[in-house]
Design a protein around this nucleic acid. Structure first.
Length: 303
DNA sequence: AGTATTTGACCATC
DNA sequence: GATGGTCAAATACT
């Protein structure tokens, strides 16, 4: 199945490149959008390379395997992607199991793998689908950040309890452009799709993530004259997460929603609470167990 | 009733 | 003391 994922990633990368080409020819195209597209192209290649080099297209490749190859399995592309050493998940798991670690701090997490993604939104699709990266997240906090107009939302993997998955992410709107979301991922997922499906009764109808994973990826048309096939995403599933003016970010995931289609899609998108238009980019770290230490610093794009 | 989200409080770090 | 990250009780939702 990884082979198919590689093909999907490369196809996405090609789509992003096509969009970028159009935007580059368009004098009125925003720089930020171009950066987001470049970012997504790079990520698509990173994911493909990761699948090829680290996992070797081996569907049985495990997280431990990634751990043993920490910092060495991803080929650096250009100067935009940086990698750093980081501890194996074993360390993270020890922390999880240790009752004395009831409260983890930002400092302790600093050793976890960390990478960022910025999602530019222009979509009329629900916010629920928007920040969906293929994983099930549960919001556990929100905080006003000094100097930031919008609060930061804190999410952890839904399967933290069941599988001890310590992956977390932080989502925050950019001050300068509320249609762009800064997403910081901390730690890689140690849960896996199969187990996830089996872990919760409501997910038992999903025997295989790959079976429902869309193979084609249609970009919706938008005001940016993107080369879209149609106005829909070819996806059979959806999760729900919505932004509301009151809470800024609200993620809804309930058994019924999951039952009608889990959050196992192949892109990230978002929408603002005040505008409603179609997403123009997609990206996710879905199913991507980056080697520990992978640090994708997108800030370089926004100097 | 079970599950997810909200939000004030707590804790670690700087 | 200020700040960011997390906890957990209260609340909302399905």
């Amino acid at each position: 199945m990884d082979q198919r994922r590689v093909a999907t990633e490369l196809t996405q990368g090609k789509e992003f490149a096509m969009q970028l080409k159009i935007h580059l020819d368009n004098a009125s195209s925003s720089k930020e959008l171009q950066h987001v597209l470049i970012n997504n192209i790079l990520v698509s290649y990173e994911k493909s390379l990761y699948l090829l080099t680290t996992r070797g297209l081996n569907p049985n490749a495990s997280n431990n395997e990634s751990c043993s190859q920490a910092g060495t399995s991803i080929t650096r592309i250009g100067s935009q992607v940086s990698f750093s050493e980081s501890p194996c998940n074993e360390q993270v798991n020890r922390e999880f199991k240790d009752p004395n670690h009831k409260r983890s701090s930002a400092k302790r997490k600093s050793n976890m793998e960390k990478w960022k993604n910025q999602v530019h939104v222009k979509g009329d699709m629900g916010v629920e689908e928007a920040l969906d990266d293929g994983y099930d997240w549960r919001k556990y906090g929100q905080k006003d950040i000094l100097g930031a107009k919008h609060p930061r939302g804190y999410y952890r993997c839904t399967y933290r309890q069941l599988q001890g998955c310590l992956a977390t992410k932080q989502v925050q709107k950019l001050d300068k452009d509320p249609s762009i979301f800064d997403i910081t991922y901390l730690g890689s997922h140690t849960c896996n799709p199969e187990s996830r499906s089996a872990s919760t009764p409501q997910n038992q109808s999903f025997q295989s993530f790959e079976a429902i994973r869309p193979t084609s990826f249609h970009f919706p048309s938008s005001s940016n004259n993107l080369p879209m096939h149609d106005n829909t995403f070819d996806r059979g599933v959806t999760s729900r997460s919505t932004f509301s003016p009151e809470s800024e970010l609200r993620v809804e995931k309930n058994p019924r929603t999951v039952n009608s289609g889990p959050a196992l899609i192949d892109h990230v998108s978002a929408e603002t609470s005040t505008r409603s238009h179609t997403v123009d980019v997609g990206f996710s770290f879905d199913e991507l167990e980056f080697a520990n230490g992978f640090n994708f610093d997108h800030s370089i794009f926004y100097n």
